[in-house]
Design a protein around this nucleic acid. Structure first.
Lengths: 248, 248
DNA sequence: ATAATACACGAACATGCGTTCCATGTCAAG
DNA sequence: CTTGACATGGAACGCATGTTCGTGTATTAT
């Protein structure tokens, strides 16, 4: 009689480690044993090594013992684990697999209008149907941008001219989980529930208020008292305008 | 502000190192200084370090000094060097795996300012081995766009706000051979020699004058008498704005 | 000729980082 | 209760690797 081996292994710690390895690929180099331990709450390097040896034996990772940070995930086996990871992790893993892609397919989440909150894809969006998507060369984005944080919106109406954005423009946005993620000086899409208004503005947190600065330098800022509700729907990463002949 | 580096300065050893860094990516982790030295025929680690510092200063690689093997190539800069490498190397370096016709590499011809005629690439430029280019997904452009007609300009200064184009924006343009090619309602870059002014406007030919209509609907048109010189430098196809946090 | 640069080497040094060994805790089988 | 396979920590050890420094050699400007 053998012990109760939890149905072939992959404990919570295994998962955490695999997850971290996947996410870490963006950095361009693998993590060290100590970094893995720190991230996964394992204090001893020997324990991390213990798990890495198992993962290697089971074929989830490959290691090069002669070398610092000589560890890498085996992409084929990652799919097998994907359902036990968060979606973000899955995306980062999947991205790592086809890392050669110079072209990012960014889901088009909907339209942004001044009079309604900007649509934001659910953070747990399963497989984004590429029905509607915008393709962007990776070279246009800051290095190390995670594609699973990005989505696109089409601007409707010309009420955002103060942001130098017009009807038909496409804004590429990065999802934010909370208002706190927005740093001063970043351009964000803000929803002001009490005014029923969405605008694109540079965001500045001041003492007792928020300052929302239009991109157009000839226009003045608007101020929002901190007691007023304010919801940041995303950070603006890029604006694309397809210029077509217009009849006037 | 994006500066373009003269390809001068990249010695044979720089190239070799970049090449090796690119090829080594397959292994899943970056090489060590000593490995780089061994591969490129440099016996001293300090010399390798010497070159890595230069490459970092010039923006070809990024380093994390705290970390072993903490070096990574900057993909955007790599294809700039690709033509100096062999084919095999190019594949691994530029990761041109899916470099199908999905991605257009548009030469960045220079800058457009209000006070000078917009630069236009020579119509006979066969090889664009320019260091500077912008990559655009073909899906963003109208079908059947000939890529050899396209070029890109970076906007300098905020004097084109009336066209909803600001400092740092990139405009993708289509070359025109003569003024006659511009049709009513198309947005063009116009050079007005008698006023020493370049502007981006919607173009309309009227009875005795040209009407140049700003993209911003809140602003009025300007009129140019047909006797005045007017030179159309290109048609605007697309405007791209990379939004970055700004300190204000 | 002298001085200033840019390149190049190799050795010494300081850390980074993986490995190994030992102690401890847990739990189920005998 | 004892045993033994696992799981976990912690610390020491030692090779791996980046950094610094002294020195040497061309090339070019003064």
């Amino acid at each position: 009689m053998m012990m109760v081996r939890k149905s072939k292994g992959l404990s919570d710690r295994h998962i955490k480690i695999l997850n971290f390895l996947g996410e870490h690929q963006d950095k361009g180099y693998p993590p060290s044993i100590r970094e893995i331990g720190e991230e996964t709450g394992i204090s001893s390097t020997s324990v991390v090594n213990y798990y890495l040896e198992q993962l290697e034996k089971w074929g989830y990772i490959e290691r090069d013992r002669r070398i610092s940070r000589g560890v890498r995930v085996v992409p084929e086996r990652m799919d097998e684990v994907a359902h036990r990871l968060g979606n973000a992790a899955r995306a980062s893993v999947a991205q790592a697999v086809s890392m050669a892609a110079d072209l990012l397919k960014i889901p088009l989440a909907g339209r942004i209008v001044a009079s309604a909150p900007a649509p934001v894809p659910a953070s747990d969006f399963g497989y984004y149907d590429q029905e509607a998507s915008v393709e962007i060369a990776r070279s246009l984005l800051p290095a190390r941008t995670k594609m699973d944080e990005l989505f696109a919106l089409e601007v409707q109406g010309d009420s955002m001219i103060d942001a130098m954005v017009n009807d038909g423009d496409i804004v590429i946005m990065r999802r934010v989980e909370s208002n706190a993620e927005a740093k001063n000086g970043e351009m964000v899409a803000v929803w002001l529930p009490e005014r029923d208004e969405t605008t694109l503005k540079y965001f500045y947190k001041e003492t007792n208020r928020y300052r929302l600065q239009p991109a157009n330098p000839t226009m003045g800022p608007i101020y929002v008292d901190k007691r007023e509700k304010l919801e940041i729907r995303g950070k603006v990463v890029m604006v694309i305008r397809k210029v077509a002949a217009t009849a006037m």
